[in-house]
Design a protein around this nucleic acid. Structure first.
Length: 633
RNA sequence: GCUGGUGUAGCUUAGUUGGUAAAGCACGUGAUUCGUAAUCACGGGACCAAGGGUUCGAAUCCCUUCACCAGCUCCA
């Protein structure tokens, strides 16, 4: 709720704390109010204000409240660490999207047992319910205190503050820490927290700096919320595509090729189905498809700018007296395709797709299942057009994205990534490109958020972030406006008036990496792929040897109908076969015994324990075909 | 790449203070012919990630390398 001090609380004396004001307005509110927003900025309620401020009281229900709670808990962590390890050095302790952390430098490394000790100490601090108070001091004063306490990282932080600025220091018990705030009013307001992990992190995020020890934690309003959080983590663990990939025989990784996945028959079947679907949609959307070579001469990479920017991540090799590089992206090959002949404006927009296998030497520590690999297939396309086609073409791409993602039941949101620190081209070119993308987004009427400085080195981009079944988001698609490559490669087209002009080029992907997308949907569906994607759509199993011949007949008919079918005639009990099919997450189980053989019917059991008996095989096939065509989940 | 951790049969794991490997699942064989999430018995399978060292003796202790895991940095 917002209070305008000037209007509503005139009777208060200048300098009354906002908390006191909030408390007097409503006692219930006072219990909930944990901090305030002053002139749009978060501030502590202990802050004394003058009557002209507009104050927003943040209750525990507001999104900002979570950040304040996390932040305060980080400071309780710091207090606990300092009381157990008086020689530890403090750095910073911010709130994050799902919790908080604090970076320390310890004399001797700590381990998970120490974490439990720290947690116990934090509980003591919370129980003691120390009031948290805020003190404003001069920069000089703060610096002297940090020096006295022998806190080098704090000294560095305060030193960076402008000379005339004041510094706020928060006190709780005998602990004090420089911080912008705001914090909770007392340590006792923290209800449910847990320290989750220990990790190394560079001071100020720079790998040239010293590595500090980072302690992570989570904090919630209620114990039940914390339980839910850990349940979600458990669920995510169950869905881990690395685990499912093994259990369902989808793919594997070998020490002989780190970061380069091997796809097994079932995984390959899913990839093929994804690609078939992709081709179908792209054909409908007016794309043509090409293939460019996997390795190209270094000179081409010098021309494209990749050599300067990314040569350390490229796999290179010598051939006679020339150096070649395995392609880390498909664009330069696409440029050569364009340059192969003269183009007219009449061909535009010219949509050239390529399922290009690219290799990038990613740092060893970054590899992760199918999510971060050294070799993957981009579902790339380069689109050449005139400047006035940009908006409508971006709309076309978003429309295609819509179609493709909706089939998987994936929602998405858009982000606009702007000029990064490392970039080529002039500021003017960047401004122009960013304006083009913004206009296109405006034209489509879709909401988007801006991701400052996250663009590609050659141009700004619209990133498409999908949301999976358990609420995690993944950046998959991206649309990038490239004003560099057409110039560097001297691309031209003949315009209406016969003059030669430089075309506009968009790069775009929908899946991003086919392999990574496969990993994401594996987790999204928890391995229970919808019928159209399932590598085995039906399994036929006989109850006993007496029905083996009939089971074979049924399987043959399913296969003839184009259904991916397996046959299980092992000499096992039917319960055993069902269990194994269930664990393989096969959508349709055909269970046939003497009864079905006599009647010429089938019994099916759908994944999810739906049992149906006495069905005609042709009806079931028709039903399955309809389900596949509709691609419903 | 950096910090920390891990590496034992195809998979998941046990292995006490150093005394040269154990189980379940899977696999093979035999018996069983069974009606909706595990039939029984027997059997094969591991130079304990690789290389080096300490020791009478190493899966176990030390070093190097590789891979994986968590995080950091990075991600055209």
């Amino acid at each position: 709720m917002k209070i305008k001090l000037r209007d509503q609380v005139r009777e208060y004396k200048e300098g009354t704390s906002v908390y006191e004001i909030a408390a007097s307005i409503s006692e219930g509110l006072a219990r909930m109010a944990i901090c305030g927003k002053v002139d749009g900025k978060l501030a502590d309620l202990n802050l004394k204000l003058d009557h002209d401020c507009e104050v927003q009281i943040i209750t525990s229900k507001d999104p900002e409240a979570k950040m304040v709670m996390r932040h305060t808990t980080a400071h309780v962590l710091a207090q606990a660490v300092m009381s157990i390890y008086p020689n530890a050095k403090l750095s910073i302790g911010p709130a994050t999207d799902d919790g908080f952390y604090y970076d320390f430098e310890f004399k001797t490394p700590i381990n998970n047992d120490d974490l439990a000790k720290i947690e116990a100490e934090m509980k003591k601090i919370i129980k003691a319910n120390f009031p948290i108070t805020r003190e404003v001091v001069t920069r000089q004063e703060a610096l002297e205190r940090a020096k006295k306490e022998n806190q080098p990282y704090k000294i560095e932080l305060i030193d960076a503050i402008d000379k005339n600025e004041t510094v706020t220091i928060y006190h709780q018990g005998d602990f004090e820490d420089v911080c912008r705030g705001p914090h909770l009013r007392s340590t006792g307001m923290i209800k449910a927290f847990k320290l989750t992990k220990l990790a190394g992190a560079y001071w100020r995020g720079d790998e040239k700096n010293k590595m500090l020890t980072r302690i992570y934690g989570v904090v919630f309003d209620k114990a039940s919320e914390m339980e839910e959080y850990f349940k979600m983590l458990e669920e995510a663990e169950k869905r881990d595509h690395r685990k499912l990939g093994k259990e369902l025989d989808l793919f594997f990784l070998s020490d002989y090729a780190p970061g380069m996945p091997f796809f097994m028959p079932k995984g390959q079947t899913i990839i093929n189905t994804l690609i078939d679907f992709w081709r179908e949609e792209h054909k409908k959307a007016g794309y043509v498809e090409i293939t460019t070579p996997i390795a190209l001469n270094r000179k081409l990479w010098e021309m494209s700018g990749h050599w300067d920017h990314y040569k350390k991540n490229m796999y290179t090799f010598k051939v006679e007296s020339d150096t070649f590089a395995v392609k880390p992206m498909n664009c330069p090959g696409g440029m050569l395709f364009y340059k192969e002949r003269i183009h007219s404006y009449k061909e535009f927009p010219l949509r050239v797709a390529e399922l290009g296998k690219v290799h990038r030497h990613e740092a060893s520590g970054t590899l992760h299942g199918l999510f971060r690999v050294r070799c993957f297939t981009q579902d790339d396309a380069h689109i050449f057009m005139t400047p006035d086609q940009i908006e409508s073409e971006i709309a076309n791409i978003i429309h295609l994205v819509d179609r493709v993602y909706s089939v998987f039941g994936l929602e998405y949101h858009l982000e606009l990534s702007t000029m990064p620190a490392k970039h080529i081209g002039t500021i003017k070119e960047w401004e122009h490109a960013e304006t083009c993308l913004k206009n296109a987004l405006k034209h489509i009427g879709k909401d988007y958020v801006i991701n400052e400085g996250d663009g590609a080195f050659y141009g700004p981009k619209i990133d498409i972030h999908i949301k999976d079944a358990i609420g995690r988001t993944w950046q998959c698609g991206t649309i990038q406006l490239d004003m560099q490559l057409p110039k560097r490669f001297g691309l031209e087209y003949v315009d209406k008036d016969g003059s030669r002009k430089e075309p506009i080029m968009l790069h775009r992907v929908i899946f991003g990496s086919v392999e990574r997308f496969f990993g994401i949907i594996t987790e999204h569906f928890a391995g229970a792929f919808p019928l159209w994607l399932a590598p085995v759509q039906a399994i036929v199993m006989n109850v006993s040897e007496k029905s083996e011949e009939y089971a074979k007949k049924v399987a043959k008919k399913l296969e003839d109908a184009g259904i991916k079918t397996e046959l299980d005639t092992r000499g096992e009990k039917i319960g055993y076969k069902i269990r194994s099919a269930q664990m393989q997450k096969i959508p349709y189980m055909f269970i046939v015994g003497e009864k079905e053989a006599d009647e010429g019917t089938v019994s099916i059991r759908k994944r999810g324990n739906v049992e149906l008996g006495g069905l005609q095989l042709k009806d079931v096939i028709k039903q399955m075909k309809d389900e596949i065509d509709k691609k419903v989940r």
